[in-house]
Amino acid sequence: MLSKTKPTTCTLGELMIYQISKTIEDGILAFHGFGSPLVQLALHLAKNNHAPNLILVAGATYGINPKPPFLTPTSNDLAMGWGAECSIEIDELFDVAASGRMGRMFLSGLQIDKWGNMNVTRLGDDKKLNMKLPGGGGGCNLSCDVENITIWTAAHRALPNAKGRRRYRLTESCDYITNVGHLTSDNTPRKQMSYLGKGPDNIVTDLALFDFDDDGHARLINLYPDTSIADVKESTGFKFPIDENLSVCELPDAAMIEFIRKLDPMKIHERELSNNDRNRNFALKG
């Protein structure tokens, strides 16, 4: 199953998992929600590397510090909570966040705007529902309450359709704000709201990494070995500032890649990626 030799390349999925894991501080309580295999793996990777004291709360089972034998395609599965040293329940999980004890949560959306607002509820407006999205689970509450939010999406690349139109994942504005970022639905800056949380501080995509500037606007900080500023611009529905120290991001090391491959033998995380993106590989140094 696993190759005997050390990996010499990493995949896009593994790169994204590593980059999400780097946003996780040691010693905090972090929760991964459901429907998010890249994030589930990132939390386990973080705990196994730079964040051994992480309080890792598994989404849907609410098991704490579990040791899953393998990643499953659905999150409320005994396997995902396997070996947990203790567990909490749904009400307690959200109380932990509402009382300011949750350090980081991971959110996404079919639309993500330049202020880090996210839409997982619907496309279209009140009068005309064009597409019903699955809904945000507890994302709305957590986007207000949790200290820091990492946003991730594996569908940043917006290819033109037959008519040459692109539907942007990173878009100028959201049709509906499910999870709030740095500017609310009535255009109030987040800093003026009485939320406990500070809002999103990172976006990890299939093309690049962003942080947020002092105004709460997404800012490009890292490219990937195979992407350019032009690639990112082409697939982004808004103009964005670029960090003056823009660089190509770091890759995970061989041991981290082996850890990910062992924990996800069925490659569940690749289901978040497009078919083309599953073939993107990056050579590790030396």
């Binding site: 207000c144 309450d145 499910t178 639905s185």
Partner: peptide, 12 residues
């Protein structure tokens, strides 16, 4: 009471 929800689409 709840501290979250304000500023999101759920209010409307």
């Amino acid at each position: 009471p709840i501290r979250s929800i304000l500023g999101t689409g759920f209010i409307e």
